[in-house]
Amino acid sequence: MRHRVLLFAAGLAVVSGIETARALLAGRAVATPEEWQAATSQVRANLQPEDLIVFAPRWADPIGRLYLGDRIPVEMAARADAARYRRIWEVSLRGAQAPEAVGSHPVSTTHHGRIRVTLYQKVPIEVAYDFTSQHGRAHASEFPTDGRGNEVACYSEQSTLHCPETRVEPRILTVDFQPRRGLEFSTSPSHTTRLEFPEARLGKVLIIYTGASEYDTRKHLDAPIHIEVSIDGFRLSEIRHAPGNGWQLTSVDTSRWAGVRHVVRFEVAGAPGGWRNLGLHAEARP
């Protein structure tokens, strides 16, 4: 009994001591502006055009961009994935690792107080055609999904394609709370939007990312959106994007069309019951 009582008291003393000390010294565990300055200066000085900058853990991102945001264009911050980058600069706190760096080869690691800077090397994938970047060359039209009615051409204003019921515009989409650069289709329950790229140079693979771009709509609506992809009129793939699928990757073999320009068409049919926005980003890769 004596030992048990003293053990409880000792346990209380240890927990109390650790908790009080951690509370009073909490500020010492935080990276200082000088450390951020030193870490990001190293990245800035060695940055090359095909490099990606990431921060880990993800919640540190705004502070990282405070120091390096001028070197992180919107296209990089809202990337679909990290495939096209040759090197990755990972600025990390608390020993965290960015998911983009997993599987890449670390070339160098430097410590700046509480911040670690690691440079990773990887094999980049060349993008033959970026459909989001090339959206200005696309034509849009809209037709009733049930086939009872005519196809109507959409008009372009600034960078947005306006259709009677729907709209397509390049945006930063928020999919699963992450930024994703792509084309936003405001879908309609009754109409299908057709987006056609007349001269898309294809590679061996067509990568298509889809995502519902607004959490509110997912909350209220659970019917899937249908996306049909065709090349030169040949129906290549049908994608069903259901709520909860996140940033969904579909990869299609396009070897037989590789190296030449083709007509690529995306048809997006909204879910019955209401409107919802769909985000889409596609790339032709070798």
């Binding site: 705004p62 961009r65 001028d70 992180i72 919107v74 809202a78 930063i172």
Partner: peptide
């Protein structure tokens, strides 16, 4: 609330706070 930050990148033309 992440979407608001992404809108700002889009409309203000920068990711740098």
């Amino acid at each position: 609330f992440n979407k608001y930050e992404h809108w700002m990148w889009d409309f203000y033309g920068t990711t740098q706070p």
